[in-house]
């Protein structure tokens, strides 16, 4: 597997694309965002809620790591991802418009939304939670640009089998979100 060198600017650009896309989804009719392609699949709101659940598990870990880092005066970082973390990250990253390594969602990451009762108020809450969480992530990435990425690595949301430094965690969360943006595209195509 080729080396993976990541930078905050690349992450910010991709995160802005995700935020712009979700802002567009926010303006779509309720039916569009609550209609799933099949009874066993998620609708768009469920996908977004899943992403909010996932990121919220990382927020306290990210904040803890931030309390350990020190300022840098050498410009923004670039970070070479370690091999095992690279494998985990690449497992999430979509390949073009495809989602490789499809996996079953763990119970704790499942969106507990009842598709039958989703109304305009719940839709607003889902979008607000998502946008708030991912704007926070962006603020953390932007803030990290002037810090040295030296801190105790922290466990991922699936446990200590995968430990991340901040740049790796940012990349993992981004690839995970990008993967689900592909899923949202598939849901939208299924409705045409």
């Amino acid at each position: 597997m080729p080396k993976l060198v990541i930078t905050p600017e690349h992450q910010i650009q991709r995160l802005n694309q995700i935020l712009n896309k979700v802002s567009e989804l926010q303006g779509m009719p309720l039916e569009t965002v609550t209609k799933a392609p099949s009874p066993k699949s998620w609708n768009i709101l469920e996908v977004l809620e899943h992403l909010s659940i996932a990121i919220d598990l990382y927020t306290p870990k990210i904040e803890q790591a931030f309390s350990e880092v020190t300022p840098s005066d050498t410009g923004s970082w670039s970070f070479k991802v370690r091999p095992w973390q690279r494998f985990v990250i690449e497992g999430q990253r979509p390949k073009g418009k495809k989602r490789p390594f499809k996996m079953k969602t763990l119970k704790r990451f499942e969106p507990l939304l009842d598709p039958e009762t989703l109304d305009a108020q719940k839709r607003s809450a889902v979008f607000e939670r998502f946008l708030h969480s991912y704007q926070d992530l962006k603020a953390h990435i932007v803030s990290s640009r002037t810090k040295q990425m030296r801190h105790r690595p922290f466990s991922s949301a699936i446990g200590p089998i995968v430990k991340f430094y901040l740049p790796e965690a940012f990349e993992f969360l981004l690839c995970h979100a990008e993967r689900h943006m592909v899923q949202i595209d598939e849901i939208l195509v299924s409705q045409t």
Binding site: E9, I12, Q13, L15, N16, R145
Partner: peptide
């Protein structure tokens, strides 16, 4: 110094 004035995507 190093602050982003405008971000790609904004």
């Amino acid at each position: 110094q190093s602050e982003l004035i405008t971000q790609a995507g904004n």
